[in-house]
Structures are given as structure tokens and as C-alpha cells.
Design a protein around this nucleic acid. Sequence first.
DNA 1: CATGAATGAGGTTTCATTCAT
DNA 2: GATGAATGAAACCTCATTCAT
Lengths: 220, 220, 220, 220
Amino acid sequence: MNIGNTMIKRGNQLKDNKETKEKLLISAKKEFIEKGYLSASLRNICKNAGVTTGALYFFFEDKEDLYGALVAEPIKKLHAVMDRHYAEEQAQIDAGLLIENDMDHDVEAAIEIVRCLYLHRDEFMMLLTKSQGSRYQEITGGFVMITEKHFRRMADNLEKSFGAPPVADYLIHWIAHMLIDAFIHILTHEVSEEAAEAHVQQVIKYMIGGWVGLFTPANK
Amino acid sequence: MNIGNTMIKRGNQLKDNKETKEKLLISAKKEFIEKGYLSASLRNICKNAGVTTGALYFFFEDKEDLYGALVAEPIKKLHAVMDRHYAEEQAQIDAGLLIENDMDHDVEAAIEIVRCLYLHRDEFMMLLTKSQGSRYQEITGGFVMITEKHFRRMADNLEKSFGAPPVADYLIHWIAHMLIDAFIHILTHEVSEEAAEAHVQQVIKYMIGGWVGLFTPANK
Amino acid sequence: MNIGNTMIKRGNQLKDNKETKEKLLISAKKEFIEKGYLSASLRNICKNAGVTTGALYFFFEDKEDLYGALVAEPIKKLHAVMDRHYAEEQAQIDAGLLIENDMDHDVEAAIEIVRCLYLHRDEFMMLLTKSQGSRYQEITGGFVMITEKHFRRMADNLEKSFGAPPVADYLIHWIAHMLIDAFIHILTHEVSEEAAEAHVQQVIKYMIGGWVGLFTPANK
Amino acid sequence: MNIGNTMIKRGNQLKDNKETKEKLLISAKKEFIEKGYLSASLRNICKNAGVTTGALYFFFEDKEDLYGALVAEPIKKLHAVMDRHYAEEQAQIDAGLLIENDMDHDVEAAIEIVRCLYLHRDEFMMLLTKSQGSRYQEITGGFVMITEKHFRRMADNLEKSFGAPPVADYLIHWIAHMLIDAFIHILTHEVSEEAAEAHVQQVIKYMIGGWVGLFTPANK
DNA sequence: CATGAATGAGGTTTCATTCAT
DNA sequence: GATGAATGAAACCTCATTCAT
């Protein structure tokens, strides 16, 4: 064995550039997407990465950790995008600048979210549709919650500032849920990001239509 | 062997209540709901039912079959309700009797669906949120599809009969998806059927608001 | 339930002529031939017979017994044929009537055996090729043994009466084995009994050729 | 955990002798020979090897693979021996060097085969008598076939070159079968290789006697 | 005669994980 | 950093067999 600063051979080939971890992540992503969290096999992941089980456990604590390594970063980014958008809107409300329905702003925010989702499309699809059994299986709930809180504040403000009728908690919750679901739906049904952005505009328009309807006296 | 007043036998055993199958189904439902299809353990199901594995395999072919025994009937009923409702609405369209938005009929139909769902609440919750890995994991797709077809026909009719603007396929698909999702959402978030019926009315109202918005010239 | 002399309905149809046992035997034969003794499944046998497990256990003690019910009779018949033939030949020896090689008699005997085998072809094929794991798995040994004893006596007689050279025990044993194997070979490779009888004549001729060779001084 | 002077570890365990695989193969051989392929239990094999089931599946893909690991090499060797012998004999025929019955060569070849068989006696006994249910259950057929082809060529050559009478296909096939069977018989009935070699000489002599008989006009 | 429910042991296989080297 | 041998529990499933009815 040559111990110096040269590459050493150890079992297989000359080390592929110390990118074992990368190979594992790629292989893992594939397996999780194909089989879902529970049915994914660590053995398979290692085999397809051309690496042994031991190597996996050097880089990752366990199955959950490996899964987390794929999705944690995207989740954080998405949270950041959403937080920023909601904070901005809240700031406008607080400054009394909010017009009744600022559709342009909503669309813009939605598009930004779509961009974030498509930047890590594989990871988000995996996270949002294949994580049953993992610690992330209820992840949507988190996104819904922060959205819901924002909607609640907005509805309260509309009520206070414009005398709009109150909106029931359940409806607020559901609309938030529906919005998140709409993103998931687009992500899973549309490969092209361009088309996705077009879709999301329609969706937002539809949702604002519904929202407006809530504050409109029931037409006979 | 007679121990005290309890008959103990191999084989047939003095039937507890002639309802071993029932016990298995109850135990299975519990396990599937708690752990999801994949993580559910047949051994556990049998143990909790106070029965051996062999007994399970007398009544059911395999894990899938056991799962199917719980959900097949509810699914059939739900399909029936939806089919009937959509057929009726189509009949009205064909007879030229459909007014632009027959909200009452829609609400009534939705309530019927809710009733069906709550009649088998456990089974539907299980089916709609815990079936990853089973043959039913894509079941919602089916419900969405028939709903989508119906919406497509309705939109086409509106376009033809009232000169309404056309609605893009994607949007139709998504609205159908959203409607189905709304039912799932209610089912999973609201225990009381009464409250559920109230919720669904709000939801339908919201959705019709969105729908109407589609046919309204964008107000500046 | 009608208890009289009329046919009663009990579960399925009017009893099919009280031939349940027959149906089981037919189904069993099929299964054993297809899968071999060990891989054959009693459940399968019952299902294909349109009968329940209980019924099987009414007629047969266990798997072995069921198997035995198929092969015992044929085995007995075959033993009888062989015993008779060997006894006759021995009688001729004792009476000093035996000519050196009575090929005609040998062929005749072999043909009789072939007839017996083809009378129960399925059963013998099953017995001779699919009984690994059953009590009958070494059945050929029995047939070889009685044949071997006969050959031993014949060789001893030849030695004593005609001054033929002695034949080693092993060779006697092997020739007996080979003869039995020849029957099995014909049975398993030739469907038509007619052709089988033709084959057996060739085989006997060959074997006598070998036998004669033993008593012939090795030609340089 | 250090108990006394014996290291006990999970995972790798202080290697007994770095020969777990060997222990498994030995234990497997024993089990397969005792019970036959189908009745052999992997659990038993592992237990007797003092190893867990998982270890078995590290070294072998499944039951078939384990079985194959025992018999594949011997089979290959035997094929090689037979192929070489038949090719040599064919070469002599082509060169016109073949005398009518080269008994010496035949005996020599047979002895070589016997040596090969006894070199892996356990494996061959297992293979030839206990493989029902495995992929190798029809292995003898292969050996018979190549032998048969060789005999066919030899008989044709005898016919063409020496005017010998033609030999029926069935007979050729059966003689080939018988030869193979003779080897099996010797292997299973004689422990000592020395004795086996003696037996095989007798057998070959007998078979040549039969063969010669075929080309001899039936003596009155 | 025959049913059908039930047993319980055992089958092969897969899994995430560990650790000495 | 990484290997590869090994663990041990648990997975789903099938089997021959039993027995009250």
C-alpha cells in the first residue's frame, strides 16, 4: 500500500475523486423515488452506487439521516421563500398599504415558490409523495400551517379594515391546505417549469375568485 | 382437554362468537391505520386478534386481499354515489334543464358523498392516507378522473350554450383534483359528520366562486 | 336435512354419486405427477377435487396414506408377476429342464412385466420418478433385490451344472439393477405400449449378449 | 463485551477461522445429503454451521445458489472428462485408427470418470440422488445425451466401415442411459474407489458383450 | 360423509445495522 | 475512508393436520 499523497488502490479502483458520498446520494434519490421510503433498500442503494454498506454508515447515521440529507436543504429553502413572502405581505398590511386583493403580488410569490420547487424537483416530488414511513411523512402539514396563519391574519385584517364578513377557521385552514396541494399537484403533473408557471397563474386566479366570493353577498 | 369450565381444543376451538374473521378485520383495520399498509405486520394483526397466522390465511389470500376486504365495499359504494350524481347532472344538461350554476344540486351531491365517506370513515381514512405500497395507492386518481370527465363536459356545455370562455384542460383536471382532495381533507380533519357537512357547504361555495370567476372578465 | 334414502344436499350440490374418494385419487395423482411427492400440496389436491380437507382425512390417514392408496395395488401386482416368473424359472432349474439361455422365456416374462407397468402407467411413473420424500422412495431397491436373488441362483446353477465361471456378487447386483432400470427407462420414455414391448425385446437381447459374454473366455 | 477470554462481538465477531463460508458449505452438504434438496432446511444448515441466516445470504443468493456452489464445479469437471474422452475416440475414428472394439480405451476412459466421481463423491451422490426439486434434478439427462451422441456416431461408423447392422435409436439411447446409470450405481453402492474401479471394468466388459451381441447374427 | 375453521410450526428471504480490520 | 463479514429479528406465507358440527 502506497502511503503518500498519491491515490491509493484499495479493493476496487483508484478512488473516483472522493465522491463516494455523492454517488450514494444519487443512488439513494433514485431508489427512494422508485420505491418510496419504506420499500427502499439500503443494500440496493449501496450496490447501485458501487459502494459497501459500511461506507454508507460512515457518511450517514441511518436510513432517516440519508433521507434527510436529500430533503433537508430544499425544505429549508422553501420555508425561507414562504416566510419571506408572508412577512412582506404582513409588512404591507401593517403599513396599511395593502389593497383589497393584490393579485400581482400573490402570483409573483407563487411563481417564486414554483421556481424553488422546480430547482429541486426530484427531491420535492420524493418528499411530497414518497415519504410515508419517514420522519417527513407529515411535512405538508408544516407548510399548510404557516400558510394558514398568514391567511388568518389577512382575513382578520380584511374584516377589521374593510368590514368584510368573518371567515371560519376551517375554511381558512382548508384554503391553505388547498394552496399547498395545488403546488404539489403542479409539481407532480407537469415536468416543464415554464408550463408550471402558467398553471400556477390559473390556479391563483381561481383561488382568488373563490376568496372574493366569500366576501360577496350570496347572489340569489 | 377440559380445564375448569373453559373448553380448550386444537383445531376448531369452541368458537368465541363465531366471528374470528370479524376480529381479524377489526385488528387489521387498527394496524393499517396506525402503521400504514407497508409497516403493518400480519403477525401483529393476528396476535391482537388472538388468532394464529394460519387463521388469517384461511380467510384471506394474502396481505393485499386482507386490505381489500376492508376497503373494496366502501370504494364501490362511493363510486356508485358519484356515478349517480354525475349521471343525473348530465341528464339535466342533455334535457336543457341546467341553469348556469345549480349550487343547490352540487351541495346536495357533496353532502351525499360526505355521508358515504363518514359511513365508513375508518376505511376511507385508511384508504386515502395509508395505502402507500398497496394496490390501492393510486385510488384517488380514479375518483379524480371521473370527476374531471364530468367537469370537462360541463365546461364544454357552458361554452356551447352560454358562450362562456373555454377552460384549459389542466385547470379542469386540477379543480377535479382539488374537489376530491377537499373531501379527503374534511374526512381527515373533522370527526363529526355534522360539522363535515357544514364544511363541505363552505367548500362548495368557495369552489363555485372560483368557477364563476373563470367565466368573468378579469376586473381590473 | 332430509334423512331417508334420498340424496341430500349438503353445502354444495346433490352428491356427485358418492365418488368423492375417486375424485380425490384422480386429483392427487395429477398433483403428485406434476410436482412430486414433497412439493405436492394436499390443499391443492382437495381444491382441484372440489372437496374440503376434512373429506380427504376421512378417507386417508395422511399424505403417505393417500400416496399409498395410489401405488400400493400396482406394486403388489408387479411383485406378483415377478415372483411368479422367477418361481417358474427356478422350478425349471430344479427340474433340470433349464437350457443354457432360454431367451424366449425371458422375453416373455419381460413383456408381461411391461404389460403390468403400462396397465398402471401413471402410477408407476409417479412411483418410480416422483416419490422422493415418501416411504416409497427406495422402492426400486426391493424390485432389484428379488431380481438379484434370482440371478444369483441362476449363475450358481450355471456354475454348478455347466462349469461356467463364477460371477461376482457386485456384477449380479448391478445386472439386476440395470434390468429394473431398463423397465423404468422404457416406461418413462415410451408412451405406446406396443413400442415398449418392441424396445424390451431389444433390451433383453442386449442383456443376454452381455450375460453370455461373461461366460465366454475373453477373446484377445 | 469481553467475557472471560472469549471476545464476543456483534457484527463481525472475532473470526473463528475466517471460514464461515466453508462451515456453511459443509453443513449444507450434510443437510442436503441427509434430507434431499427440498426437505433440507436453511435454518438447520445455519444452525449446524453455528451461524445466522443472514450470514448464509451474504455468501449465497438463495437455496439454489447454495446448492449450486456445491455441485457446479464437480459437474464441470465431469463434463470435461467426458468431452475429452469422446473427442479422442472420435479423432481415432476420423483417422481410421479405430479397431472394432477398443476395450482398453473404453475401460481407461471409464476409470477416469470413476476417478472424477470419487474425487467429489459426496457432491456427486447428492447431485445424482438428492436433487429432486432443484434446478439440477434432470442433470443425468445431459450426461446421457452427450454419451448417446457419441454412441450414435460410433454405431454409424461401424455400419459404414465394417458393414455392421444398423442399431435402432432407442437402443442407442438406452445403452447410453445405462452406462451413466452404471456409474451412478457404482458410486452409490461402493465406498472404496479401488473396488469401484474393479466394478467398472466388469461393467464395461459386460456392456461390450452386449454391444457385440448386437452385431452378431442371432445364434440358433 | 363431509364441512370449514383453526392450529402452530416451519419455510425462505430481506432488512437495517454493526464493527474489526 | 471504506470494506465486507455477520447479526438477529422480523417479514410474508404454506404446510399437514385436527375436530366440533
